[in-house]
Design a protein around this nucleic acid. Structure first.
Lengths: 228, 228
DNA sequence: TGCGATTTGTCCGTATGTATT
DNA sequence: TAATACATACGGACAAATCGC
């Protein structure tokens, strides 16, 4: 059930060991299977993954770039620790990026883009109804990636991609909580409605509210997990 | 005269072959020594640089993430081509980032931060008077990195770092042109003055003007070089 | 302070996989 | 289709740096 691959990323990416390792480790970190702060040693990691050190080291580079691993030469390689401050920084920056993204894409939107967006919403709702949290999260991010795609600004898109694994991390955190309220269906309906509308300012305001809505909930979770 | 290292980057970074290769190739690309679109083959490149393939491949990965190299697995590795559109995207996004950066750092600024900023301006002016274009460019970027440092937002800082080599590229392009007007001393004086002031809105407006001032000039250069 | 033990960084030879001719 | 060039990957080896005693 690896549909997320086809949705969130370009399917024409040719596979290498290195990219497989990236996908595997990335998933493990985002899901919390590899706990934050855990030290990793190359040799044992290579053994467990069944790859040699060369592609593994390249994968590590990529994960360091994504901010999922921390690496200090000759010393240590650890799973990135996420603090409360990191989360606040993430939320703040994410709002800024997404608002800017809509500013960039606003005049470029076409009717086929609107169809695309509504389809992404449909995919999200489908995943929600099948009770597959991982898939729902992937599709929620896919929905939010829409404006970045339309903006056609490579620098903006790259910055967004850098945020995605961290968003996934916090989305999973939110979902694994007992409360598990999460964003309501209606919220994304409103998001799409405004994104297809003609009031840029309203869209941008909605983004602030939309993102900040989930902020406090996750913030509580982080404080709790930090105490343990 | 490699002062730029000490200024623009953290000096406590332990050196590896890989990081040396990154620095070397990055410099070559930014200065245009390796022309855009040029195809590179690993083996010959490793030979020329005097390193084995392993650290070279890691360096390549990093340069790909920086957007200086383009790599399609099993096919080709080429020096990134910069189009007119890329430049416009860069300028737009850079304005957004720097404005947001000041918004983030505004309340965090201390008097020692102001001293730091004024020092960066002094360093820039020193380099200007000694007619060392490379050094002046490094210090100009260092000046503009100030707000990102103060903001203490890792995601924002990472996004900025991703832009830096591209800014360097265009700054060098601008400097190598016949006109070579470049930004005047006064402009950065005004920049620093407003950055140390208490009118955030004015600062943000200034950033737009400041950045856009150099836009058209470089845009002309790109059109010219594209025709050749 | 110095000395092993461990891990990382690097190199080399070779084999396999992929794209292009 | 085969041949070629090159990227990718493996395994073994050693040097360099770090850490703990």
């Amino acid at each position: 059930m690896k549909l997320s691959k086809n949705i969130a990323f370009s399917p024409l990416e040719s596979r290498t060991r290195s990219s497989d390792v990236v996908a595997s480790l990335r998933r493990s970190i985002v899901l919390g299977i590899l706990p934050p702060g855990m030290r990793l040693t190359e040799t044992t990691l290579a053994e467990k993954l069944g790859v040699s050190r060369q592609p593994l080291r390249e994968a590590i580079r990529e994960l360091v770039y994504l901010g999922l691993l921390e690496d200090t030469p000759y010393k240590s390689l650890t799973v990135r620790k996420f603090t409360e401050k990191d989360f606040v920084n993430l939320v703040d920056f994410r709002i800024n990026l997404e608002q800017f993204s809509f500013q960039c894409c606003w005049e470029k939107r076409t009717s086929s883009d609107f169809d695309d967006l509504r389809n992404r919403l449909q995919l999200l709702n489908d995943a929600r109804s099948t009770n597959d949290p991982g898939e729902a999260i992937a599709r929620e991010i896919h929905l939010h990636s829409w404006s970045f795609k339309i903006s056609q600004n490579e620098f903006l898109l790259t910055a967004w991609r850098r945020l995605v694994p961290h968003l996934e991390y916090y989305f999973h955190l939110r979902h694994s909580s007992v409360s598990g309220i999460g964003p309501q269906k209606d919220i994304h309906n409103e998001y799409v409605r405004l994104a297809c509308g003609n009031k840029l300012q309203k869209m941008q305001n909605h983004i602030s509210e939309h993102v900040l809505a989930g902020k406090d909930e996750v913030l509580e979770l982080i404080k709790m997990t930090a105490k343990e």
